[in-house]
Design a protein around this nucleic acid. Structure first.
Lengths: 278, 278
DNA sequence: TTGCTCCTCACGTCACGTGAGGTGGC
DNA sequence: TTGCTCCTCACGTCACGTGAGGTGGC
């Protein structure tokens, strides 16, 4: 019989841990003195404790350990628990490795440029989303802006206000041709709007669903359109530095509806689908 | 200006997170209404928030992020923070990889044997420790047991009780020769005992320090000495399964002082120094 | 009597998630 | 008036570490 202090020294764990495991029902002392509350541990408790510590090293929670050491658990159940744990650890491992890559990229950025650039570009996943859009080939951005202004002026009058989300523009051109831009533009929709389309001023809008994008590099730009290429460059740099490649049409989401007279307060999120090339 | 709900939708974070970052001083709303307490965020807050989210993805704590985005931090300080973070992540990565190996070993153990064997063998690091021991070559384990019994009977009378720790035996023989066992045995010492040695019944005991052992495979055995080879086999299996090799003299620590008439309640921790072979 | 060991609360950790209960504007 | 959004507490998370305050045995 060991008192808790001796037992903790032998097992090299804290008394607190032993009391906690007692409380959790993981490892009960062989004897607890009725009146003093003193815990006494027998020699047989030691391999039991070691078993718990081993399972803890595998990363199981105390709840899982409790199940794993209960008499009723079968080898198969234990195996199933470990299989789950394995895939969790594999995921965690991949996440840590990715994190390490990100950190190293940032470090070398600082070392080469003297500061942390592109520190507001981030990758996130975009859910699928319904949009009400038209797709046209326009000859200039000015023409595109005009068409978008027209939509903003007309569509809200013909569509329930609460259903309309932010204005969105999608660049489908795979190569840059200054006088032939394949552009989709319109409104994101907040919920499953029943109507399937509408037409304003010769522009036909249809409802369809934008696919989910698992890895979207996003960066917000604020102010005049001239600022766009700065942000584009930032995203480009980020994408290159972090071993991604562009993978699909980019989007611009107008978080503030664009007002022609106040383009300096435009808030636009630029979104570029990317894929990791390892 | 966005109300917190709009801003949270745009930034794809929870309102709670925004309020929490406000409370922590990481991201203050542009305006807080005096009487209602309503928070209003400006467009400029969005890249600020993204910057915070990026740093969070790198694994910095909110405290560190607070320092990193403060105006007073230099690129060098930021770099230093990231270098520390990198080495932490590298460590975490190695630990996760090790964990994965352990889990896979356990899984294949279950699959081949139908149960989790050697589940009470664990690896831990042993600190350096003073001992009061003799080293002799003995011709049999029986002879060794006799000598140890003699020490147990004599030494405590000549040494302050509180200084004596458990009885310990160390096997220095590198190869197994049944009639020539190079054995060190005596007492672990609880603190820096001043005396440098003593002699009892023709056995000379000296004080010296056992080196630290970074990776010690330990397993407790309870009961008669005949049980020892079972535990030895268990540790051997464990060591092999987990890609370790033996690396130094093994130790036996008698957690209960051995009593000749009650060897069935002996509690002995068997300790084998090991090294990872990757 | 003085240490030493044991006991039982109970707070703190880290970054929020999740109600509870109440208020203001359309 | 009814929803909707906003607010401020305050608890819970996970596995203990770390006192605080008190008691029993040598």
């Amino acid at each position: 019989m060991f008192k808790i202090g001796d037992f903790s020294r032998i097992a090299r764990v804290s008394c607190r841990l032993l009391r906690y495991y007692d409380e959790r029902g993981l490892l009960k002392p062989a004897i607890v003195d009725r009146e003093s509350g003193y815990r006494f541990y027998g020699a047989a408790q030691l391999p039991q404790l070691n078993r718990i510590l081993v399972l803890k090293e595998l990363g199981l929670t105390l709840d899982q350990i409790g199940r794993a050491i209960s008499k009723t658990v079968s080898a198969d159940e234990l195996r199933a628990m470990l299989l789950i744990r394995r895939s969790d650890v594999e995921q965690a491992l991949a996440a840590e490795a990715e994190r390490l890559r990100l950190i190293e990229t940032r470090i070398s950025q600082i070392e080469s440029t003297g500061q942390l650039s592109a520190d507001d570009v981030l990758i996130r996943s975009e859910p699928a989303r319904s949009v009400l859009t038209a797709r046209q080939t326009v000859r200039s951005f000015a023409e595109a802006r005009g068409a978008i202004q027209q939509l903003i002026a007309s569509v809200p009058r013909q569509t329930p206000q609460h259903a309309l989300g932010p204005v969105i523009a999608i660049a489908h051109s795979t190569e840059f041709e200054p006088d032939s831009i394949d552009l989709e533009f319109g409104f994101a929709l907040n919920d499953g709007l029943a109507r399937t389309g509408l037409s304003v001023g010769g522009i036909d809008l249809t409802v369809h669903e934008l696919p989910i994008v698992k890895h979207m590099a996003v960066c917000v730009r604020i102010g005049l359109p001239e600022h766009a290429h700065v942000v584009t460059a930032k995203i480009g740099q980020f994408v290159e530095d972090n071993g991604y490649v562009l993978a699909g049409p980019s989007r611009e989401v107008f978080l503030h509806a664009p007002q022609p007279d106040r383009m300096d307060i435009a808030v636009i999120e630029m979104q570029y689908p990317v894929e990791s090339v390892r």
